[in-house]
Design a protein around this nucleic acid. Structure first.
Lengths: 253, 253
DNA sequence: TGTATGCGCTATGTATACAATACCGGAGAA
DNA sequence: TTCTCCGGTATTGTATACATAGCGCATACA
């Protein structure tokens, strides 16, 4: 009796979740501009859900950081400065550095390290292409995100994992976002290779229980990302690949 | 008997906020035990609000980390292990370290540093008492929290400030909590003095634009807190001062 | 006596009605 | 012409009704 898909609405996913997804898409796609107020009625007709689940979705998006509560009531789309973005990336890098340190200091079995190494090898394989193809690049983005997620898990610290997830919720702070932005740069290939070296070193450090080294390399990894994001923002080419761009404040701010 | 005759409700604060406050008190006071499911109806009669604001409050408390969503629906009080707690403190320390680094690297005017120095001096004054009185101790807790909040602000990084606030939302991770726990230790006075020395050094480092030093000392500050919290948990004396204790898992976990 | 099935209850998810407030626009007076 | 006040409208906050799904208990049958 699991599937009764011919209903008016899909009961398998709650209206709240559907509304949250739909609204996030609208924000990231730029249909709702930063600073713009979102009225509940508007959100209702965008999502098809009723006001109650829409309100729940709005609250969750606020906690997620995409919306900002207006004191007098309601929500507006949050705007981010360029510095907000680089700070967010550095923030995530710092947290991931702590995760790497925890993993190294607390010890990780070879069994647990295996998926990371597979990920590493798969990326190595992709990077042999010169220049890298579009398909390979999008595979890279997925593998890179997986690598970061696995590394985070290795810390075995639920509070830390939770916080990293929250820090990555902002679209431009996710491991994928800056890679996308980098794709516009002529030095893209070299950057990917350097990033991969960081990945290799952090695994080595964790294996050898070098906590400080594991942490340092992850922080450096984030700084590389910050630098490249800045570069990519300077020469704004192919930035349409980065949906989060819709959230960046204009120069007038 | 709270509900019956009070026809007038306080309109200055929303029902959602009032429900959130009331429920948080119930959780922290231990009236709701970790792992226990909170039914909406139960929450309704505890808070006096209707289901809609209560649901909003529950969602916010979940985001805050005090509640956990049950897959089949509803919420339960979250339970924390001792390691969860020490990790949370170290997490906050890491974030505060980054804030101190930002403040140092980006420069802070003497004008901005003034409130921090006043805070420092006020704590110095308190610590001259040997042994410290109960009243002075509770003043210390307030001043210490203020110091940490001011330091966080100095980073001038909204994303970082936001994340630190979230990390401090868990009651045992707040700057005040571990100080409370320490009060049980015979070495309390010395610990407070060492902590104060950390405060002094971080200000000095920020003034001299020594980012790495500022960061290092804040992280050490957190490690001191972790160590002392562990000590305090070993000899469980006067731990009733720490409301968050209600959230710690029993030894069976 | 044990297990399985069905029924009923309760709790959650959703929708909507109602109330209060904030914002906007127009009109009148200084 | 501008400022202020008043009223209307629109939007949010709150309450509650309704539907549905999950859970437990009881009963019946093996």
């Amino acid at each position: 009796m699991k599937a009764a898909p011919e209903r008016e609405v899909d009961r398998s996913v709650s209206q709240t979740v559907k509304a949250q997804l739909a609204l996030r898409d609208q924000i990231l796609s730029g249909a709702l501009r930063p600073g713009e107020r979102i009225s509940e009625l508007q959100a209702v007709e965008m999502t098809g859900a009723s006001r109650t689940p829409v309100r729940m979705a709005l609250v969750r998006l606020e906690e997620e950081g995409l919306l900002e509560a207006i004191p007098s009531g309601g929500f507006m789309v949050k705007a981010f400065s360029e510095r907000d973005i680089s700070d967010s990336i550095e923030l995530r890098g710092t947290l991931e550095g702590l995760a790497a340190r925890f993993a190294a200091e607390r010890g990780v079995s070879a069994r647990e390290l295996e998926p990371l190494k597979e990920c590493l090898a798969a990326i190595d394989e992709l990077l042999r292409q010169v220049p890298i193809s579009i398909e390979a690049f999008s595979s890279y983005v997925a593998l890179n995100a997986r690598f970061h997620a696995l590394l985070t898990e290795l810390s075995r610290s639920p509070p830390l994992i939770r916080q990293i997830d929250r820090a990555s919720a902002l679209p431009f702070a996710s491991p994928s976002a800056f890679v996308m932005a980098q794709s516009a740069l002529p030095e893209a290939q070299q950057i990917l290779i350097i990033g991969q070296e960081h990945h290799r070193v952090v695994i080595d450090a964790i294996e050898n229980r070098e906590g400080a080294r594991a942490e340092a390399v992850m922080r450096e990894h984030a700084r590389l990302a910050v630098r490249n994001l800045r570069l990519a923002l300077r020469n704004r080419t192919h930035l349409d690949l980065l949906p989060a761009l819709a959230l960046i404040k204009t120069a007038t701010d």
